[in-house]
């Protein structure tokens, strides 16, 4: 089946089995290996990408289901050599340890900030409740997003 979709602002057209998982399509067909697989059942969130402004577990979506959609992956956040504010905040706050959950975690935070620029701590926690991290205890991840919110409030 011919699948046409936007991935990181680029049109992608491929003849592909529509029952292939979006995760495999991204990793294998497009070589976008930043998106990770940790559990294969939508529990760990390592494979989170943004589909039409919503964070989804790409291991639970088939590529046929996103035909014509707009996909954003971790590789698409950096613009003109400039990191996304979430990437910067994660780095500065020490929110990254082994890094395996990081792409999915950042994409969940990105989806949150896209629709809610100044989330509360509880909203931040809820947005990443489906992203498991074994290294950080989440504290520095939450603080990284809080820092963005604080900066936004200060700049008003």
């Amino acid at each position: 089946m011919i699948i046409k979709l936007m991935v990181n602002d680029k049109m992608v057209e491929r003849d592909v089995d529509p029952t292939k998982r979006l995760l495999d399509f991204l990793r294998e067909d497009l070589n976008l290996t930043g998106t990770k697989e940790g559990c294969s059942e939508g529990e760990c969130g390592a494979c989170t990408v943004i589909v039409n402004d919503k964070a989804v577990a790409s291991c639970c979506v088939l590529v046929g289901q996103v035909n014509g959609d707009n996909i954003l992956t971790i590789e698409g956040l950096e613009k003109n050599g400039e990191l996304d504010i979430i990437q910067k905040a994660f780095i500065e706050k020490g929110a990254i340890q082994c890094g395996f959950c990081t792409p999915g975690m950042i994409m969940s935070c990105k989806a949150l900030l896209m629709k809610n620029p100044k989330p509360t701590v509880d909203e931040i926690k809820r947005s990443i409740e489906g992203n498991l991290c074994r290294c950080t205890g989440y504290t520095k991840i939450i603080e990284a997003v809080q820092q963005i919110v604080e900066e936004r409030c200060n700049n008003e």
């Binding site: 956040l77 990191l83 780095i91 020490g94 792409p103």
Partner: peptide, 21 residues
């Protein structure tokens, strides 16, 4: 000093290659 990890840049951008990649 609480210095930033060099490897966190590639980890934050999905560029880090793990064995599964």
């Amino acid at each position: 000093k609480s210095l930033v990890r060099e490897d966190s840049y590639d980890k934050a951008t999905g560029k880090t290659i793990y064995v599964g990649d």
